[in-house]
Computed example of a mutant assay.
Amino acid sequence: MSLPASEPRPSAVDRASAVLAPKVLLHDHLDGGLRPATVLDLARENGYDELPAGDVDGLARWFRDSADSGSLVRYLETFTHTVAVMQTAPALRRVARECAEDLAADGVVYAEVRFAPEQHLTTGLSLDEVVEAVLRGFDEGSAAAQATGRPILVRCLVTAMRHAARSREIAELAVRFRDRGVVGFDIAGAEAGHPPSRHLDAFEYMRANNAPFTIHAGEAFGLPSIHEAISFCGTDRLGHGVRVMDDIELPSGTGPSGRDVRGAQLGRVANYVRDKRIPLEMCPSSNVQTGAVASIAEHPFDVLARLRFRVTVNTDNRLMSDTTMSKEFGVLADQFGYGWADFERFTVNAMKSAFIHFDERLRFIDEIIKPGYAVLIG
Rank of each mutant, 00 (worst) to 15 (best):
M161L: 15
E140N: 01
C156Y: 07
A165M: 07
E140L: 13
S142W: 00
R114K: 04
S197N: 11
A160S: 14
V175I: 15
P196S: 15
L157S: 04
E129C: 05
R155N: 06
F115D: 03
V130E: 06
A116W: 08
V131F: 09
L121G: 09
V113I: 15
E172M: 15
V182I: 10
V109M: 01
P196Q: 03
V175G: 09
H199W: 10
R114V: 11
A190D: 13
A188Y: 14
A133M: 04
G193K: 05
V182R: 00
V175D: 11
V182K: 07
I170A: 08
G181Y: 11
A160F: 10
E169A: 15
A143F: 02
G184F: 03
L153D: 10
A116V: 13
V113Q: 00
I170W: 02
L157F: 14
F138A: 06
G137W: 01
V158W: 06
C156H: 07
A133D: 07
M161P: 06
A145H: 04
H163I: 14
T123V: 09
V134E: 01
R168E: 15
R155S: 01
A188P: 05
G193F: 08
E169D: 15
M161K: 09
E140I: 05
G189E: 06
A192I: 13
A165P: 00
R150P: 00
I187V: 15
V158I: 09
E112C: 05
F177Q: 06
A160D: 10
C156N: 12
E118I: 12
S126V: 10
R176C: 09
F185T: 12
T148Q: 13
I170M: 04
G181C: 12
A190G: 03
E172Q: 15
R114C: 05
E172D: 14
L125P: 11
Y110D: 05
T148Y: 03
R198K: 13
S167V: 06
P117M: 08
P195A: 06
V183H: 07
V154R: 02
A116C: 06
R166G: 12
D139S: 11
M161T: 13
H194T: 12
V183K: 07
R136P: 00
D186V: 11
V134K: 01
F177C: 08
